[in-house]
Nucleic acid binder design. Structure first.
Lengths: 162, 162
DNA sequence: TCGAGAAACATGACCCGTCAACTAATTGCC
DNA sequence: GGCAATTAGTTGACGGGTCATGTTTCTCGA
């Protein structure tokens, strides 16, 4: 129990459900978007673009904000472009970067898919918790994120300033 | 804000990190096992078998306890059998079920891989939280699991008795 | 008892993500 | 200015998961 090589009983009781959730949550997130022809990651990409100024972002920033690798985002962006939901273009000031822009169709698709996604999130997460519990959960998860990936978009301004 | 079709500000603050974690955690779980030639799901399968009586379980029960679909588990079991880490056999009393048994090699592989996995979990999760926070997190996540998948292995005895 | 339906797996096609190259553009440095 | 190192993206091969379908075995009722 005191052996740091193993998890304590309390840690196991916290870890098991978290592992189960990590295995289950992805499918729960894909499910409501599936009927709209979107992956959760594709949905995340569209959300990031919709929030960006001019609905445009460089590929790298898009990857960073959407939480995917550059390769994954590039593949995804190519497929979304083939379906007309976004558009890629060369950055005029830096020939290396690809600018990704949300199209009108892309925005429509996002607006169409959002309600069922929100409904699913609400039903999956918040129906099971009180507001206080949800806030606690958010704080703890943020602490984990900050710890394992300090450079993520959830980083505080102070961290990013470095 | 009061519109139930959208998430409240507080809910968004809880949801965003959770979504980010759902996107990030899988890769963090795969990483330490990769050098041992195991997927996180394969690892979970081996863990379930190691805990089972006679290190054997029917395919369906294995899928249920490991948190995967039957198809996923079947594919995974076939590949693990090809690598000699487990063995499939026909159940003598019911010809439909496939019994899956952990081999000696499989157990060795599991024992070899476990420490780095545990270390990773500890570093990813528990180094960022106090014991009390970890316990809270566990309770909240369990509440979510119970709510979205009441038939899972985390269900209480009372639920399963129905 | 026998035949329809259900249960338990297996399988193959397809899609997605990763990893490892590779290309192209830019920056830095001497 | 020119060349090496860095940055940004792309691409293709490969492996794993899902979905739909097929197969075998069992159950249950008439």
């Amino acid at each position: 129990m005191a052996d740091p090589k193993w998890l304590s009983k309390n840690e196991i009781e916290a870890w098991r459900p978290l592992a189960a959730l990590a295995l289950l949550l992805p499918s729960r997130l894909e499910e409501p978007l599936q009927s709209h022809g979107l992956t959760f990651f594709e949905y995340s990409v569209l959300v990031v673009l919709a929030d960006a100024t001019d609905r445009t972002a460089p590929m790298s920033e898009l990857a960073h904000l959407a939480g995917g690798s550059l390769s994954r985002t590039s593949h995804s962006a190519r497929r979304l472009e083939e379906r007309g939901l976004l558009q890629r273009s060369r950055c005029p000031t830096d020939g290396r970067v690809t600018l990704v822009t949300l199209t009108g169709d892309g925005h429509e698709r996002l607006v169409a898919a959002a309600p069922s996604h929100v409904e699913s999130v609400r039903h999956s997460i918040f129906d099971a918790l009180t507001p206080d519990e949800a806030a606690e959960l958010g704080r703890h998860v943020t602490a984990i994120l900050t710890h394992i990936a300090p450079t993520g978009p959830w980083a505080s301004e102070a961290d990013r300033a470095s």
